[in-house]
């Protein structure tokens, strides 16, 4: 009786934090055991991003666009983490037999997803940092940050909205089987295109850019570019305060949506017996 009282209550903050740490732990340890990712996940993407810089050089683009590519290339790391490290990971967990264990345990699925994201954050942040640092030095990108606090706040808000969206869409992966991998694969180039990873968002035209604004990285990157490049405001889609306001709404909406959808999809997956079936 005394022993049982030492367990955290279901959905308590303590259990949430414990779950986050428990899920992040194997990822952090795994990254330490196999360090080859540093070459494949940091050095090689830096070369790929450089290719886009040279495209702009080949067509005689202003140097601001080089900075846009460097920032976009760095932000791909976060999208990849959401896509492969969080959303589609649920599919792999199902294939390994872990997903059913996650559901059986008295913890929050949001905590597990957050643990996955934080566990992969080491490689993600390092990749983004190296691309910004080395890319800026190699290509002599000039940053003019007017307010570091505004830049930091924009980045954090973008990340909250992005990972909230990732959690929301992760719920779909509770139901998916082999198509999960293909759908995640499909969500790369189209998202790079619609979010303006390598060019100003407003180049897409107002209505397409407005539609793409539902992807947090689109507005987040646009706001950050306005804050760090001298000519950023002239190439921005909307003003920074408006973009931050939309990002705040998206953050709240995605987090609430994630909580609701994860619970709904979990019930649906249980009812349809999808949590343990695999390889269809």
């Amino acid at each position: 009786m005394e022993r049982s009282t030492s367990f955290a209550k279901p959905y308590s903050t303590r259990l949430f934090v414990q779950t986050v740490i428990a899920r992040a732990y194997p990822r952090v340890i795994g990254a330490q055991r196999e360090k080859s990712w540093m070459f494949f996940d940091i050095f090689l993407p830096l070369l790929a991003v450089s290719a886009y810089v040279f495209v702009y050089r080949a067509i005689g683009a202003p140097e601001t666009y080089v900075g846009f590519v460097i920032m976009g290339g760095a932000m791909t790391a976060f999208w990849m983490n959401v896509l492969w490290g969080m959303s589609s990971q649920l599919y792999w967990e199902k294939e390994q037999g872990n997903l059913a264990l996650y559901i059986i345990a008295p913890n929050s699925l949001m905590a597990i997803l957050l643990g996955m994201a934080l566990g992969g954050m080491l490689s993600t942040t390092l990749r983004a940092f190296v691309i910004v640092l080395v890319g800026s030095l190699l290509f002599e990108v000039q940053f003019t940050v007017a307010s570091f606090s505004a830049l930091f706040g924009t980045f954090i808000l973008t990340m909250v909205a992005l990972y909230g969206m990732g959690m929301m869409f992760s719920s779909l992966f509770l139901l998916l089987n082999r198509e999960a991998w293909h759908l995640a694969n499909l969500a790369q180039e189209p998202i790079y295109l619609l979010s303006g990873f390598y060019f100003p968002l407003k180049s897409l035209g107002f209505w397409i850019a407005a539609g793409a604004s539902v992807i947090p990285l689109a507005l987040g990157m646009d706001a950050m570019r306005q804050l760090v490049f001298p000519s950023g405001p002239s190439l921005g889609f909307l003003s920074v305060p408006i973009e931050l306001g939309i990002l705040a709404i998206l953050s709240a909406g995605f987090l609430v949506g994630a909580r609701y959808l994860l619970a709904y999809m979990e019930r649906l997956a249980i009812r349809e017996g999808r949590l343990t079936d695999s390889r269809r």
């Binding site: 495209v55 702009y56 067509i59 666009y65 180039e189 790079y192 295109l193 990873f197 060019f199 180049s203």
Partner: peptide, 11 residues
């Protein structure tokens, strides 16, 4: 399309 947009806005 990413390359087309990049090319199109500059040229």
């Amino acid at each position: 399309a990413i390359l087309v947009v990049m090319y199109g806005i500059i040229t």
